[in-house]
Amino acid sequence: MELTLAISSSPIIGLNHYLVLAAFIFVCGLLSMMLKRNAIGILMGVELILNAANINLVAFNRFSYAYSPDHKPMLDGQVFAIFVIVLAAAEAAVALAIFLNYYNNFNTIDVERAQTLKG
């Protein structure tokens, strides 16, 4: 309802459109983290959340150039996005290594079984 209102009321695509989209993707990532019992599904949820954040970063970077002191292009958001992508790749690598180990030990990828250390 709100979404359609926002679209119809302003044909020009603004910052809010990106933010709403990012929020949606973020919520989707959260949902998949909460509902997936497959560890890799949870990893995918994390990737979604990171992408949502990246969209925000890049969008803010794009729409806030006017605030730069000497009207030079501001690249902070993009740089941060690059770092996020790098770290996401690293995170995925480590997470997958952990999952492989987990699979070797428990012979499954179901996170429900990973509660050996529970008191």
């Binding site: 890049v58 996005a81 690059i82 992508i85 995925a92 690598a93 492989l100």
Partner: peptide, 25 residues
Amino acid sequence: LESEFLAAVQLVVYVGGTLILIVFG
């Protein structure tokens, strides 16, 4: 959003790297 480099990185690293990694997992 005029961030061509970032888009390329997204495609190369994410789609070409991370996702392949996930699929391997």
